[in-house]
Amino acid sequence: MYITKGKITQKFLTLTFKKTLKFKKAGYPGAICTFSGIVRDDKDKSGKKINYIEYKCYGSMAKTKMKEIYSAVKKKYAPDYLVMVHGTGKIKAGETSLFILVASQHSKQGLNAVKEIVKLIKTTVPIWKKEVFADGSYRWVE
């Protein structure tokens, strides 16, 4: 799963960690590196409180791009296990919009992979976010 509707749930995160800890393809992974993108409880420049963020995507292209990133990272870093999911739709402050997990033999390999995935997702996957304020007005983040 690369793109999911809504936030990334606690249940998904828990199951992913459990699955990763049981993964024994190359012995236990020596490192499990994760990144969670969390919606901040934020205000815009004028002080208006952001009610939630709405993520929109070009679904089919976003999935293709996520698959390309997955394959490229698998090839470059050869992780034991790799999970990358981006949420779409309304996501509130404190909820998870992006989750990446790389289980690898060594920390450097995992940390570098996570960093590269975040960068690639931000720059190559057609996803957009709209900050929606309490009064119903909104602003596209560019």
Binding site: G37, Y55, C57, Y58, H86, S97, L98, V118, I121, K122, T123, T124, V125, P126, I127, W128, K129, W140, V141, E142
Partner: peptide, 8 residues
């Protein structure tokens, strides 16, 4: 037509 991406 794709405006600048803003995922994450």
């Amino acid at each position: 037509l794709l405006p600048p991406f803003a995922g994450g």
